[in-house]
Amino acid sequence: MSDRVTLTLRAPLQESIEADAIVPSAFATLGEAEIGALPVWAGRARRVLGDYFQVSGGRSTTVRIVGDVRRAHGIATGMAAGDLVVDGDAGARFAFEMSGGRADVLGSAGDDAGVAMSGGSLHVRGDAGDRVGAGLAGASRGMTGGEIVVGGSVGAHAGARMRRGLLFVGGNAGELAARAIIAGTVIVIGRVGPEPAFANKRGSLIVAGGVDVPATYRHACDYEPPHVRLALTYLARRYDISLGAGLVDGTYRRYCGDASTVARGEILEWIRE
């Protein structure tokens, strides 16, 4: 047993690989050789983890990946416990169906990060692609728990169909952010793209950098929402995010909607300190 397992990329990836075997919770009972023998798919070819990574350590749920793995997809699929740090960019479907533990990407993540997440904490220091924290195609629910914190910007459909959980975006969000959210909270410090919180049932979309509020939302009031203060304070403390006091203490304009559904959701637009 070692303190941690370190996977060091042997050479830059020349092809995309399916690396869904890299799951910290699964490494708890595996030695160094066993981890190196885990399957990795390169197209239709079955290879092993050791072909791409030098493995050091074993029987630990603390894992560090060193190297640019933006072409390695599905890392941390079904992660239920442990700590994972990616020392660079990560590929698509990172932390897919994650249910526990902490995953930290020091660079950016591809599309579908945190899709179908139900628990745990995913922190992407850079940007994330489309559908972060959303659901599988055709699924009735997206994220059902846990936290996703993206330091940069995200693509389209961020947090789509979220049922529960917290998605924080430090930059901008693309079109259809918080689409059809059932509940939960999406916070965007930058600007959100067209058609935000479309078909929102009971969820909250909180935007600090500008939002074109759809006509299906109705203005309620300008106030200082205590749950926004609580959530921002929590995020700032837990993830060491620097948020201006004006956001935490600020006044937000509340719009109720989406009138195309049950209209119990809200868009909160930051308007002043």
């Binding site: 728990g145 529960r164 959980g165 917290l166 939960g184 909270t185 909250s204 009031c221 106030y223 200082e224 929402p225 205590p226 749950h227 609580l230 959530a231 929590y234 837990r238």
Partner: peptide
Amino acid sequence: KVVGNDRFWRVPVMDG
């Protein structure tokens, strides 16, 4: 709202 592992209730009152 769930923040961290805790649930909080937002009860509407006359000052917010």
